[in-house]
Nucleic acid binder design. Sequence first.
DNA 1: ATGGCTGATGAAATCAGA
Length: 273
Amino acid sequence: MSLTVCTWNINSVRIRLPIVREVVERLKPDVLCLQETKCQDDKFPLNAIRDMGFEHIALNGQKGWHGVATFSRHPFVDIGRGEFCGKGDARHVSVTLGPEAGLGKPVTVHNFYVPAGGDVPDPELNPKFAHKLSFLDEVTAWPTLRADAADPDRHAVVVGDLNIAPLETDVWSHRQLLTVVSHTPVEVEKLGAFQASGPWVDVMRDMVPPAEKLFTWWSYRSPDPTVNDRGRRLDHVWASRSLAPRARAMTVLKEARSWQKPSDHVPVALTFG
DNA sequence: ATGGCTGATGAAATCAGA
C-alpha cells in the first residue's frame, strides 16, 4: 500500500483544467493539493475533477485570487480551514484520510498558500512583506498544526506554495537573491522556525541531496525558462517524523513548465509507502 | 538582469504574482 500526494500552484484552476488531466495521468496522485485556484467555491469545476477520479473535494476559495483546493481518491474523515492574520484570505485547507488510504494510520494533509510578500524586503516599508512574516509566525504557533505533528496515532503532511526558497541550492543564484523576496535571511529563518515547530521533515531534500539544485518555479518573464534555469524551490512537501522515513519516490514534473499555457510552478509528487 | 509575462476583473486599466 502507498499514498501519492501531489502539490501544485496552478495559477487559475479554470484556465488550466486541460493540463490538470495531464498531470493526473502522469503522476497518478491519490491526493492533489492546488494553490492559487483563483475561483470561488460555487464556480469550481467539480464535475471535471470528479471525472479524473477524485470523488472527494475540499475547497477554500475566494473571488479573483488566492484559493486552495484538495482532491482525493479516498474519503475524508475530517476537513479544516485555517485563517491567518485576520484578513479572510483563503490560504489553507486540510483533509484527514482514514487508515484505509494506505498508511496504516489516519493521515492529515495540510495545504498552504503562503503570501508572496511583494517586492521590497522590509516590513516597515512594505505591508505585503509584513503580512508574509506575520503569516509565518501565526502558522508556527498554530496549536492545530502542532497537535497534528505530535499525534502518535496519526501521520501528517504539510504541502504547498510556501513562497520561500530556504537553501542556497533552492535558487539559481544565492548571492543575487539574498535581497530578493523569497530568499531573504529573515524569511528563511521564519520558515525554519515553522519547520522546527513540528518538527517537520523536508522530504523533498531527503530525496534530492541539498548539494544539488532543485527548483519548482520559473518566472513567466523569461522568454524560455528552461534556457538559463533561473528557478527557485518555492513549493514544499514536509512530513511528520513518523511518516518521513516512508518516503519512497519523488517527481518534480519540470517538463510541465514547457507545456502550452503552463503555470509558473510545476507539480511535485511524493509517494509514501 | 530581474521583470521583458500572465491571469482576474470587468469591459480599459489596474492589481497581483515572486
